[in-house]
């Protein structure tokens, strides 16, 4: 892995994130906040018959949380909720494909934590 954190693909996702939109037909909306740095997102899923028809997010945050949100929502769209529940921290790091230091873990995993909250809510 290249040691550089702000590689072209991260900057690309940070500046032009995918799926950054308000879902009018969302079946689940979960807030994700990192109060220590002011990052605040909402993860939205449109789940139909156990499948994530569309994953999207809104909000503001640093380049790492923004890129992670973009990549994760790309991955989630089309997955079954059971598959989505299997998405691990490691998977997020693989998607980012840059070295994440201890202090940036919270940024990288912010939306991922919201995903697991969302699935809990969905199954409840």
């Amino acid at each position: 892995m290249n040691e550089e954190l702000y590689q072209a693909h991260i900057l690309q996702h940070a500046k032009h994130p995918h799926n950054k939109e308000e879902l009018a037909d969302a079946t689940i909306s979960v807030p994700a906040k990192n109060t220590s740095c002011g990052d605040a997102y909402t993860l939205q899923l449109n789940v139909q018959d156990g499948f994530i028809e569309k994953a999207a997010f809104t909000g503001i945050g640093c380049a790492i949380s923004q890129a992670a949100a973009s990549l994760l929502t790309d991955k989630l769209t089309g997955m079954s909720t059971h598959e989505a529940a299997q998405v691990s921290e490691e998977d997020v790091y693989t998607l980012l494909h840059v070295p994440i230091s201890t202090t940036r873990e919270k940024c990288a995993l912010l939306l991922w934590r919201a995903l697991h909250e969302a699935l809990k809510e969905h199954h409840a």
């Binding site: 954190l5 702000y6 990052d39």
Partner: peptide, 13 residues
């Protein structure tokens, strides 16, 4: 256009 965390990270570099 740059989050404070990213400014600090680049400063760290």
């Amino acid at each position: 256009g740059v989050h404070p965390h990213d400014v600090a990270e680049i400063a760290g570099q």
